[in-house]
């Protein structure tokens, strides 16, 4: 277990960011403590036991890429099974799950079916947002919306409230523009502005989307063109947590009232920004994959910019 307790009030340091970038894993368990999301060690009983008596937990998984069978992980379905088994074994049952996209690799019906069977079997409410791999069916996203679009707007965005926390699921993987990054679009931004009108400044807000809503590495497309407009709408809230996937590794940042966090994949790791010719799947020596598929805890404290980060790998017992 690697622990980073960053006491620097300016937030996460570059060194910490780089350290945290080298791990990859399966999921993050979040708990709401005093209205502020705190991520827990998904697999560690010691940490999970810290779930407060008042509050609730939710779990984030991402980038399951069902159907992926290349060298980086010929059995992406198996690692999702392992992740789900860990979730089933949690001593404290999460109130619900979110999946931050790339459920499938190629948007094929059999891939959606296989993912449904595994994730649906968990017995949780699951809130999905699509990744770009989920909207490449013949109908350009129809297959995704047919399955997960119920009670959503537009291309699949939605919001809901859970015990005083406002959750917003955004879609930034459709209608992508040449030379651009992720894209929210005018229609969704208008919906978001309207959606947030009724939410008080004191209400904690959790926003999740597939592609990071902050510019992590635009050279690899790791950012969202019009995210700034969405983030501007979130400035007035006391606590905002932004959860993303897409980059298959943990990265985080605190900027003012907003904490950004990216999740690991359950399928395969991707290289740290700029460390490879492309962001394609990273093949590691046999036996090392699960040591890269790890877990990360992030404790977010109200009124403090600093994060307490605990990284552990699946290889650790």
């Amino acid at each position: 277990m690697t622990s980073h307790d960053d006491s620097d009030d300016n937030g996460i340091t570059r060194r910490h960011a780089l350290e945290c970038m080298i791990w990859a894993g399966t999921g993050v368990l979040w708990t709401i403590s005093a209205g502020v999301p705190v991520s827990l060690n998904m697999l560690g009983e010691a940490r999970a036991a810290q779930v407060p008596s008042k509050g609730f937990t939710f779990l984030q998984i991402s980038d399951s890429h069902i159907g992926f069978d290349k060298a980086a992980n010929p059995h992406a379905i198996d690692t999702l099974k392992e992740a789900m088994a860990k979730i089933h074994a949690l001593p404290v049952k999460p109130s619900f799950m979110i999946h931050t996209g790339d459920i499938t690799h190629l948007s094929r019906a059999d891939q959606f079916d296989a993912a449904d069977q595994l994730i649906g079997r968990a017995g949780f409410d699951v809130h999905y947002v699509p990744g770009e791999h989920d909207v490449i069916d013949e109908g350009n996203g129809r297959a995704y919306l047919d399955r997960y679009g119920k009670n959503t707007k537009g291309e699949g965005w939605f919001s809901f409230d859970q015990e005083g926390v406002h959750f917003v699921g955004l879609v930034n993987v459709v209608n992508l523009k040449a030379g651009g990054l992720g894209n929210l679009g005018a229609e969704q931004l208008a919906w978001l502005a309207d959606d947030l009108k009724a939410v008080r400044n004191s209400t904690p807000v959790v926003v999740f989307a597939h592609i990071p809503l902050w510019a992590i590495y635009p050279e690899w497309g790791w950012g969202t063109d019009d995210a700034a407009q969405a983030l501007a709408m979130l400035k007035r809230f006391g606590s905002v947590t932004v959860l993303n996937g897409h980059i298959h590794q943990i990265m985080q940042k605190v900027e003012g009232n907003i904490t950004f966090h990216t999740a690991r994949s359950t399928a395969f790791p991707q290289p740290a920004p700029g460390t490879a010719p492309s962001p394609g799947p990273m093949t590691v020596p046999p036996g090392q994959l699960r040591s890269l598929l790890g877990i990360t805890d992030v404790a977010v404290k109200r009124g403090k910019a600093n994060l307490a980060i605990i990284d552990s790998t699946l290889a650790e017992k």
């Binding site: 770009e132 040449a178 030379g179």
Partner: peptide
């Protein structure tokens, strides 16, 4: 094109002169 998996190909015949910029619909950079 449709989504091209590993090894897949897409062929298009250009019948008009001109410049035709294109991009990846999944990775528009």
């Amino acid at each position: 094109s449709k989504a091209l998996d590993t090894g897949d190909t897409y062929a298009f015949t250009f019948t008009k002169p001109g410049e035709f910029p294109y991009f990846c619909g999944l990775h528009p950079h």
